[in-house]
């Protein structure tokens, strides 16, 4: 069921995590007002088909244990503070990946009285992964790009 492309990304991920972080990558997900499509694609990364845990990647309960935040949604008014607090609590290097069109720039909802219209309006973003929702393999690639960026060997991708 796996595409070849996914396998390439997976291999690269494994190597890069070892290089950059030593052994494992811990991620905290922040739903900042998504439609849940992006969240479910992120959840699919943990299913037996993608199974990201075999690379030493795991979703953790607390931002204090997290190297990276995956943020979905365009940041609603009611979640702005939660996102800021989660970001403040995250451990260095505080990588942020904006997952989905909403997180990247507001998506169909755009900017309203209740929606900021993008994660970078509230916290700094390292990698933008567009798509509505992006496929699980695209999210994996976004994670890899953030790691690359941290390492400085590849240029930043927006």
């Amino acid at each position: 069921m796996k595409s070849e492309q996914t396998t390439d990304i997976e291999l690269a991920l494994c190597t890069r995590i070892k290089q950059v972080l030593g052994s494992s990558l811990h991620i905290r997900h922040v739903d900042a007002g998504s439609c849940n499509g992006c969240d479910f694609e992120m959840m699919a990364l943990c299913n037996p088909v993608y199974d990201i845990q075999r690379f030493g990647i795991d979703f953790v309960a607390s931002p204090r244990h997290a190297d990276m935040l995956l943020v979905t949604g365009g940041v609603t008014r009611h979640l702005e503070m939660a996102l800021e607090k989660t970001y403040a609590a995250a451990a260095a290097p505080k990588m942020v990946v904006a997952v989905g069109s909403c997180a990247c720039g507001g998506g169909v909802c755009g900017q309203t009285y209740a929606n900021a219209g993008g994660v970078d309006k509230i916290v700094p973003v390292d990698v933008f992964v567009p798509g509505c929702p992006p496929r699980p393999s695209a999210i994996l690639e976004g994670i890899l790009l953030a790691l690359d960026k941290l390492d400085g060997s590849r240029s930043a991708v927006r």
């Binding site: 739903d31 007002g33 998504s34 439609c35 949604g73 365009g74 609603t76 008014r77 009611h78 979640l79 939660a82 169909v108 909802c109 755009g110 309203t112 009285y113 209740a114 929606n115």
Partner: peptide, 11 residues
């Protein structure tokens, strides 16, 4: 609830 209120009906 209503944390993910995005104002879709207005938009």
């Amino acid at each position: 609830l209503f944390y993910t209120h995005r104002g879709l009906e207005k938009s």
